[in-house]
């Protein structure tokens, strides 16, 4: 069975969105969505680690014995996170400070470990890389959208640029994070249900049309 790269990408970004559908990596989602920029930074960081670890784990999938796979994954992921931390500290210290302790905590982010376990350990290198990219982009997209939502309502800014002075501080608090998360999941599930039901209707219609044609032909 050959999976297309486009399907893999779309899976990560939309159909299997790590935050809104798989509900992975909730800890940074709740903590870092106070601003849209945090979402972009965290998303890029996770994407980098995810692609690298997916590639390496996928390449080593036949070498790593299944008994010790989790420690091996953790070792690999931790290495990449450390490298990422050092790079960010050197070249982008402002983002490194904004992400704070959530940057080293990427090591235990269940999104990365989950993809390593569920996908990279069973699929070829290229597919794993695409999966990592898709999942990372999906993570970044949902975090950025949630961050923008909370930033606009909570502080009246977007990406640090002030739009208006009206602010509902509720959204900058933890309760606001949970509330926003819930709303986003609800909207996401609502839209995806709508799309799938529309698709189902379309399929039924096509099927019945075909049936009618056949019937007409028989008649």
């Amino acid at each position: 069975m050959k999976v297309k790269a486009k399907d893999l990408l779309l899976d990560g970004i939309l159909r299997q969105n790590p935050v809104l559908k798989l509900v992975l990596g909730t800890c940074p989602t709740l903590a870092l969505t106070t601003a849209a920029m945090n979402g972009v930074g965290m998303g890029l960081a996770v994407t980098f680690v995810l692609i690298c670890s997916n590639v390496i784990i996928s390449a080593l999938r036949n070498i790593i014995p299944s008994k010790v796979r989790i420690p091996a994954y953790i070792l690999i992921i931790a290495t990449f996170v450390t490298i990422l931390r050092m790079v960010l500290n050197k070249f982008l210290p402002s983002i490194a400070t904004a992400l704070g302790s959530y940057l080293p905590l990427i090591v235990v982010n269940c999104l990365i470990l989950g993809r390593a376990e569920a996908f990279a350990s069973k699929n070829p290198v290229l597919d794993s890389a695409v999966d990592g990219l898709g999942m990372g982009l999906g993570f970044m997209l949902s975090l950025t959208l949630m961050g923008a939502f909370r930033e606009i309502l909570g502080t009246g800014c977007i990406f640090g640029v002030e739009l208006w002075s009206f602010k509902i501080e509720f959204f900058t608090h933890q309760a606001g994070a949970l509330f926003t998360f819930a709303i986003f999941i609800a909207v996401f599930v609502g839209i995806s249900n709508l799309i799938s039901s529309m698709r189902a209707k379309k399929m039924i219609k096509e099927y019945s049309d075909k049936n009618n044609e056949v019937k007409e032909e028989i008649a």
């Binding site: 602010k167 509902i168 501080e169 959204f171 309760a175």
Partner: peptide
């Protein structure tokens, strides 16, 4: 409480 938190 929502108002209290939001518009303290």
């Amino acid at each position: 409480i929502f108002l209290f938190i939001s518009f303290s």
